[in-house]
């Protein structure tokens, strides 16, 4: 069942260029971050580690969570357009499968954005001739970032399903990210979904001691909680006549 739904979602994604944003837009923080690193070599002595702080500066706090929000908005926008919600709700599939059909592609996009970020980081470091070995923690940063992104996607999918708007959930993602930044500064970041992505990536602080178990559990709990909320919302939903 789930495989058939995922295949159907795949057909909806065909020729839709939204995923391209996740391939192309990480170039911005990479280029600007590398430029900033080269301009401040005097105060950034730790080669790859310093370059990582510049690549993830701001992007993981504000940019990536809201960008994931755009993807989630788009996924539900398809169903909210025209009479597609009627078709979706009359589809012989349980709501949990329909919600997972939205969450799993978003999770894929979260991993894709981290893979691209990692790839661009390695490329930038090689191009500017960093001589130290590549940080062995890089895969961990990226996987933890993607898991944090998964929690953001679950929250955003619930918001987009509930609000039936494209733009408002994206604005909420930005507001959530700002709140996340403040809570991270208070040491509560691991308990707030929008902080998990930046914390997982160790943005701005690659030497941060982080309890990965808490991060993974927190990401999974938020994902589960908000996916259950989406299932609940979809189960009790009447398709609006738009």
């Amino acid at each position: 069942m789930l495989m058939r739904i995922l295949r159907t979602e795949g057909i909806k994604f065909r020729r839709a260029p939204v995923w391209a944003a996740f391939l192309l837009l990480p170039v911005l923080p990479a280029v600007l971050g590398t430029g900033n690193y080269l301009a401040n070599l005097g105060v950034l002595p730790n080669q790859w580690y310093s370059l990582w702080t510049q690549h993830t500066l701001f992007s993981s706090y504000f940019f990536l969570p809201a960008l994931l929000g755009v993807f989630c908005s788009w996924e539900w926008y398809l169903e909210h357009s025209g009479h597609n919600m009627h078709a979706l709700l009359s589809f012989p599939a349980p709501p949990w499968a329909l919600c997972l059909g939205k969450l799993l592609p978003a999770l894929g996009i979260s991993f894709l954005s981290q893979a691209v970020t990692g790839g661009l980081f390695l490329l930038s470091g090689s191009l500017i001739g960093l001589t130290d070995p590549v940080p062995p923690e890089l895969p961990e940063w990226l996987v933890c970032g993607a898991l944090g992104g998964m929690a953001v996607c679950a929250v955003q999918l619930s918001l987009s399903l509930l609000l039936r708007s494209f733009a408002v959930p994206v604005a909420l993602a930005l507001l959530g990210s700002i709140a996340g930044l403040m809570l991270t500064a208070q040491g509560l970041g691991l308990y707030f979904p929008y902080s998990l992505l930046a914390l997982g990536m160790r943005a701005n602080n690659p030497s941060m001691e982080l309890d990965i178990r808490v991060l993974v559990v927190s990401s999974l709990v938020y994902t589960l909680l908000f996916t259950l909320l989406s299932i609940r919302l979809l189960s009790g939903r009447d398709a609006p006549a738009e």
Partner: peptide, 14 residues
């Protein structure tokens, strides 16, 4: 599709 507009706005913020 509002995705291009929102992505432009987000990129602009960044």
């Amino acid at each position: 599709n509002q995705a291009p507009a929102l992505i432009a706005g987000l990129s602009g913020s960044f």
